[in-house]
Amino acid sequence: MALLEVENMSIGYNTKKGYLKAVEGVSFTLEEGASLGFVGESGCGKTTIGMALMGLLPPNGSVREGRILFEGKNTLRMSDEEIRKIRWRKMAMIFQAAMNALNPVQRVGNQIAEAILVHNPSVGKEEAMGQVEALFELVGIPRDRLRDYPHQYSGGMKQRAVIAMALACHPKLIIADEPTTALDVIVQSQILGEIKDLQKEFNLSIIFISHDISIVADMCKDICVMYAGQLVEFGPREEVFESPSHPYTKALLSSFPTVTGKKSDLIPIPGETPNLVIPPAGCRFCDRCSGPGPSCQAEAPEWVEIGPGHKTLCCRC
């Protein structure tokens, strides 16, 4: 049985401008110890998916249809109490603005110890502190920084502390939403390396969300490319990265400058992402696509199998 199975999930937000269909018909599965990356631009719904998995959608958002099966149980049917029990203990999240997730007036070590105590009341205070020390060692924070306050930490250290907090209750699944976006490249590569090592060590399942396809490819074996609330391409990273089939994936790849290989012109994607209050009837990428077919405007595309485990949502492929 897969650790996480998401079937045909659709999520929407009530906004002043109308009902915003942030995510439409997304399905994927995640095995234990596997890593799955979500890549897409802002507003594509990738963060919303992470929030929905954690049961942390804002009050104006809700899962309209579909199922989220975590260890075979539908988390959408669970009561708040049940969800709270699996949150942090079984699945944890590393947020986008992780720096702000730490309480500025509490010592970092104490904050993590407290998280352990809340979720595991049988542990004593001493023992919790011992666990925190072990966690700090794991994520590479020197032991003597345990009693520091968050403002004494650098950005990278704060991110490490947040990772330690996510690991505190030994979850099976970690959802990392742009965990390194605010960091410098060197710190970013150190932290990504850290996450990779931890994944191997604890056989963690990871859902990694980022706008940067090269980071996602670096971190995850499978990649989901999202556009305007839909999954548009799914497959092993080698396939998606080296022989992308969806026009959006292709365009996305050719709009990133690189430091290696031949210097080639960047081809920006023209136009803007569609309005998700009234999404287009046919293919959502149609207006920005380099070679749309005659039926793309009107007909919604179907999934096409391209290779083993490699699928794309495009009628031209």
Partner: peptide, 13 residues
């Protein structure tokens, strides 16, 4: 050199 090392390079080289 360290900056270049830190750039994720999957698929490029």
């Amino acid at each position: 050199q360290a900056l270049l090392d830190a750039v994720p390079k999957f698929g490029h080289d």
